[in-house]
């Protein structure tokens, strides 16, 4: 049974077996020197891991490699034991990029249906309804996100990422542009996902997220400068 076929027996939405997101000696070089250089850490299942660091420290690149959107130059990322980008890893990895990527000609609900069905979910509607209501998108569910504001597009991207089963949730700067309702809902979703056994990895500059995260990885100049509890003083230094 591949990780993609395994469905959590806890009744959760979390999918997959094995450890969470494991980054092993990862490097990524676009040709101008390494953006990520020898990074090693683990974002375990059932926990929220905050990925922090100043601009240009390599957080977005690292998440994109973990999501299978970028090929590593060296090293490896596994998600639930499957190599990032493989069909097994794609089945268990849900990724929200910092800039929402959405179809121009699909409504919010059509996005949710499409992505859920791509991931083999037949009864997608109840979950989709729940997501749009909790994110405050219910009134706009049949509208085109291409005409939305940045915040509404961000909410749509979050809903799309949560509408399908996953074992690892990777989110890049999810709080940018969100109103209070959206921020609260997102915090709840992240807590539910980790409680369901998913590995949640969030790249952020938001200090208040550190209060709910169980682990923190701090990056600086493409390397891991810190790995441990989010209330450590070293984390504050990285965020300043």
């Amino acid at each position: 049974m591949t990780p993609a076929e395994e469905v959590s027996t806890t009744g959760s939405r979390a999918r997959g077996v094995g450890p969470g997101v494991v980054v092993a000696d990862l490097s990524k070089d676009f040709g101008d020197g390494p953006v990520v250089d020898g990074v090693t850490f683990e974002a375990p299942r059932g926990a929220q891991t905050a990925l922090v660091g100043p601009n240009g420290s390599g957080k977005t690149t690292l998440l994109a490699v973990a999501a299978g959107l970028l090929d590593p130059t060296s090293g490896r990322v596994t998600v639930m034991g499957a190599t990032a980008g493989s069909i097994e890893a794609r089945a268990v990895t849900s990724f929200v990029p910092d800039n929402p990527v959405l179809y121009d000609d699909l409504s919010v609900m059509e996005h949710l249906e499409y992505v859920a069905r791509l991931h083999g979910v037949r009864q997608w509607r109840p979950r989709a309804q729940e997501l749009v209501e909790r994110l405050g998108l219910a009134a706009r569910a049949d509208d085109l996100p291409s005409r939305f504001s940045r915040g509404l597009r961000q909410k749509t991207a979050i809903a799309v990422a949560l509408a399908r089963p996953f074992g690892a949730l990777l989110i890049d700067e999810p709080f940018v542009g969100l109103d209070q309702l959206g921020r609260t809902a997102l915090m709840e979703f992240l807590a539910e996902a980790s409680a369901d056994g998913a590995s949640v990895l969030v790249a952020t500059h938001q200090r208040d997220y550190l209060a709910v995260a169980q682990r923190c990885v701090g990056m600086l100049d493409g390397t891991v400068a810190f790995s441990g509890r989010p209330d450590d003083d070293a984390v504050s230094d990285l965020l300043d």
Partner: peptide, 28 residues
């Protein structure tokens, strides 16, 4: 999501094709 997942790659590919047809009709 027990009970709600199903189908395989073939089904998903069929979904992709169905959505493409829908989008083409809508565009037309």
């Amino acid at each position: 999501m027990p009970g709600s997942t199903g189908g395989g790659a073939g089904t998903a590919a069929a979904d992709v094709a169905a959505l493409r047809r829908l989008r083409r009709r809508r565009k037309l």
